[in-house]
């Protein structure tokens, strides 16, 4: 492990100092994330980029498990809409999940995540689609009546102007009232990525 260099394509790393300056990561963190990025990006095709297939493989260790939510997260990582994630995309998107990232950033990302149709609103049919995806994934059966009750109650609380869709302002207020909704937006591992990926030390270009 880690000793095979002959066929590994070296990927030019976006300036770690620049990435560290615009994120909650240190330069060492960025270098450690580069090790993670390289591992993921070469898991299927060694092209220095993460495809959707490689993304799913890294999360689930399973190429087949394509899912509404992973697909959606991949699309949000892929900010340049190239169908692949480069290292800069990867670090900037993971920054949203950093425990120190501002709540506003997490709220914005979660809004985009749930606004499946990119209309600028989280609409009722999108919420229903996501609930059905969750129930299918978890193999839970709920009656249609129960699902409707949950959605009705949610929109009563989250959509005070009762226009049937949640705008960014309403979402922000709803999240402030229900901060546990941001739990999925924080990855505790990111507080100490250099411990998770110590091999970066051997490749580090900085002394700190």
């Amino acid at each position: 492990m880690g000793c095979f260099h002959s066929k590994v394509r070296e990927i030019p790393m976006e300036d770690p100092f620049a990435l560290a300056s615009e994120t909650a990561f240190s330069v060492s963190d960025v270098e450690a994330l580069y090790e993670l990025f390289k591992n993921i990006s070469r898991s299927v095709t060694d092209d220095g980029l993460i495809s959707k297939e490689e993304f799913q493989l890294a999360i689930f260790n399973n190429k087949k498990k394509e899912n509404l939510f992973t697909s959606r997260i991949f699309d949000l990582f892929d900010v340049k809409k190239k169908g692949v994630i480069d290292f800069g995309d990867f670090v900037r998107a993971l920054n949203v999940f950093h425990p120190s990232a501002p709540m506003e950033v997490k709220i914005e990302f979660s809004f985009k995540l749930y606004d499946l149709d990119n209309t600028g609103f989280i609409e009722r049919h999108e919420v229903k689609q996501m609930i059905n995806a969750l129930l299918c994934e978890a193999e839970i059966k709920l009656s249609e009546e129960t699902i409707e009750t949950i959605i009705n109650k949610t929109f009563m609380d989250a959509d005070p102007n009762q226009d049937g869709k949640i705008d960014k302002y309403e979402w922000k207020n709803f999240v402030y009232e229900n901060p546990s909704l941001l739990k999925v937006m924080t990855l505790p591992y990111l507080r100490d990525v250099t411990t998770a990926f110590p091999s970066f030390v051997f490749h580090s270009k900085v002394e700190d």
Partner: peptide, 29 residues
């Protein structure tokens, strides 16, 4: 009986239970 209606989980709490929203897999190898 406190008289309050039983709490209903909100839709986003339910959605948040999806393992597919959890990126920990990147770090758990």
């Amino acid at each position: 009986n406190s008289g309050s209606s039983p709490a209903i989980i909100n839709a986003f709490q339910l959605i948040g239970m999806s393992s597919c929203l959890d990126l920990s897999g990147f770090f758990e190898k």
